[in-house]
């Protein structure tokens, strides 16, 4: 089973074809695989992740995610697809700062059609508990929580819709080593539990040890990047 398959994927921000940000001939990821991607800043990491998650449409080529061809979908369909199947964790600003943890997770739930009628409250609480967030912090605006807590809540938010694909974009770079280890183990155990495919981007290659594959975007991307 293939989770991700890129075939001659090209992307450029402006309509001129000569300034390609992304140009990948072929790349694929098996279902359940954990891929570590590294590369210097400006090699097109964020752009590529935006393509994989369907935020940006590819300019050319075929991009198959979980068996669906994203380039054939409309904008609305890609938004819907992302809400239903893809979890996403950023380096920072993973949460709406003025909403509390529970509302933040519910917001992610709002755009997903899976299990619409079923009250997610229990799941949310379970997730938060498994991520070691104290109950007293559930109802605080997330801006008042520590960065470590925020990143863990971000994992909860990313997993609430039981995504088949999880994309993490330098999620640990603003954490200290203690919080980083904590974060990594929580992430890995949830990925295992949900049998999700993980695309993890970081410049910190010391984190690569628990991954199935290690890729350098520089080798992969023939485009200029940014």
């Amino acid at each position: 089973m293939i989770a991700l398959e890129l075939q001659n994927v090209r992307f450029c921000y402006h309509s001129s074809q000569d300034d390609l940000t992304i140009n990948i001939e072929h790349w694929s990821v098996k279902k359940g695989e954990r891929v570590f991607i590294h590369g210097p800043s400006g090699c097109g990491k964020s752009t590529m992740l935006n393509l994989l998650s369907g935020i940006l449409p590819v300019s050319n080529g075929s991009l198959c995610v979980l068996g669906k061809n994203l380039e054939k979908m409309s904008n609305r369909e890609r938004d819907r697809f992302r809400a239903n199947h893809i979890g996403y964790v950023f380096q920072q600003f993973n949460l709406i700062p003025y909403l509390d943890a529970i509302n933040n997770i519910q917001l992610a739930r709002h755009f997903c059609n899976k299990n619409k009628h079923h009250d997610p409250r229990e799941e949310i609480e379970e997730l938060l508990q498994s991520l070691n967030i104290a109950q007293s912090d559930w109802r605080k605006p997330t801006s008042r929580l520590s960065v470590g807590q925020q990143q863990r809540i971000a994992i909860a938010r990313a997993f609430i819709n039981t995504p088949e694909l999880l994309i993490a974009d330098e999620p640990t770079s603003s954490l200290d080593s203690n919080n980083r280890d904590h974060f990594m183990s929580a992430l890995q155990s949830l990925v295992t539990k949900h049998q999700a495919t993980l695309i993890f981007v970081s410049h910190d290659t010391t984190l690569a040890k628990n991954f199935d594959r290690k890729e350098s975007l520089n080798n992969l991307n023939k485009g200029s990047g940014i």
Partner: peptide
């Protein structure tokens, strides 16, 4: 940032 986040969780 908020707008990007909303987009990522699937808001059109």
């Amino acid at each position: 940032q908020e707008i990007r986040l909303l987009r990522v969780v699937g808001a059109p």
